[in-house]
């Protein structure tokens, strides 16, 4: 409840500044991620840790779904400009928007904590990417990859959930989010 109250009470300028900081943080994380050779561990296309999802989680839990969307979409577009290309944009937007929609719902379901929300978000991201791949490749056979990606997303979702929970535990004690 306190977060809703702060959210409404927080000045527009402060909210804008926080969103801008979180967008750049998400961009930096998703760029950094390319240098982590996770592909050598799990040799499948599209496997990544989803570090930028930590930022999405933090934004969703601290600032609400509106701001979280306002961070996600510019992050995907700028990510495409900085090196993903149009194909990359299709994948990150379908994956990202589907994951965000699922996480917005999960946050409201009382039996899920941030861990469950993160795992289901990561799974939804995989589903979105495979759907985009099916359309782009014009082939349903790409769907065979989905079961591998879903298994991986349990672990990456738990990892980003752990990181998000750690950051949020510290941040909610500070007055950074107060007006």
């Amino acid at each position: 409840m306190w977060i809703l109250w702060w959210g409404e009470d927080m000045g527009k300028t402060k909210r804008l500044a926080l969103c801008a900081v979180l967008i750049s943080l998400a961009l930096a994380l998703s760029y950094m991620e390319r240098f982590l050779p996770l592909q050598l561990l799990v040799p499948l296309p599209g496997v990544k840790l989803g570090l930028a999802n930590i930022v999405t989680l933090i934004a969703l839990y601290l600032l609400g779904s509106g701001s979280a969307f306002a961070i996600l979409v510019p992050r995907c577009i700028m990510g495409a400009i900085f090196g993903g290309g149009i194909t990359g944009l299709c994948f990150s937007l379908t994956g990202g928007l589907l994951a965000m929609s699922v996480m917005v719902l999960c946050r409201r379901i009382p039996c899920f904590s941030i861990y469950g929300t993160s795992v289901l978000g990561a799974a939804a991201h995989s589903v979105g990417q495979i759907l985009a791949a099916m359309v782009l490749m014009n082939s349903v056979y790409v769907g065979a990859y989905l079961s591998y990606l879903l298994c991986v997303s349990i672990f990456t979702g738990l990892a980003t959930g752990t990181a998000g929970a750690g950051v949020l535990k510290v941040l909610r004690k500070t007055d950074m989010w107060k007006p």
Binding site: C111, F112, S113, Y115, G116, V119, A123, C151, I154, L158
Partner: peptide, 17 residues
């Protein structure tokens, strides 16, 4: 804000499996 791992989270993992 639910930051502690809950029983329901196992259900989330089970669902993905």
């Amino acid at each position: 804000m639910r930051l502690q791992f809950q029983k329901g989270d196992y259900a989330a993992i089970g669902l993905v499996v």
